[in-house]
Amino acid sequence: MSWVFANISMLAHLTGQNAYLALVPVLIGLVISVPLGIVCARWSWLYSPVLSITSVLYALPALALFVVLIAYTGLTDTTVMIPLTVYTLAVLFPSVVDGLRSVPEPVRQAAVAMGFGTWRRLAFVELPIATPVVIAGLRIATVSSISLVSVGELIGIGGLGYLFEDGQQRDFTTEIVTGIVLIIVLALVADTVLVLARRWLTPWQRGAGGDSRLPILRATLRGRPGAGLT
């Protein structure tokens, strides 16, 4: 414990770096997934090939990606963030498509019949209705991304992953445990923020299908993304 207090500013710095390295890819992944999902929901024959590509990318080992990327982006944050963005995309893209497909056909028809054009219908009807499903995907992506940042330690940029590397070299368990606890806390905080965002964005869902008290547990129990996709 005294070690923790002695190193508090380093821990804060690493936590901040971990959050930054994890969340920027999630944001970028979201920005790519939404239009990609919209396109694939609209022209549904595109969905299956695009999903195959994102799933293959998801299966690529991070180490292999680093090796390839270092040649172009060097030992920078970007090299760590690109694989994380790819993973986020693989998780979020199917969520966006599922969310858009969750819009009931009569609702879509009613929107068309009332004179919504394609874009307005997307903005005011389909995306709002897809939001809960997209946020569910976002929670998994965010939590995974936060824990995956440690892999960046392979090239020396790994946020809290540094504590594992350093702790192992010095055979110092406290440091490793601290790293694990901080990653879990960070994930919990991020997940809670997302749950709150969902409640705020989807007021109609209150009382229809309750929120989990233990969001992170539920996200974990949902299983690995990509599983069950055929």
Binding site: P104, P106, V107, Q109, A110, A113, M114, W204
Partner: peptide, 13 residues
């Protein structure tokens, strides 16, 4: 236009 299942927008009051 009125349809069988009403087709109301679930996200709007």
């Amino acid at each position: 236009y009125v349809i069988q299942q009403a087709g109301l927008f679930p996200h709007r009051t």
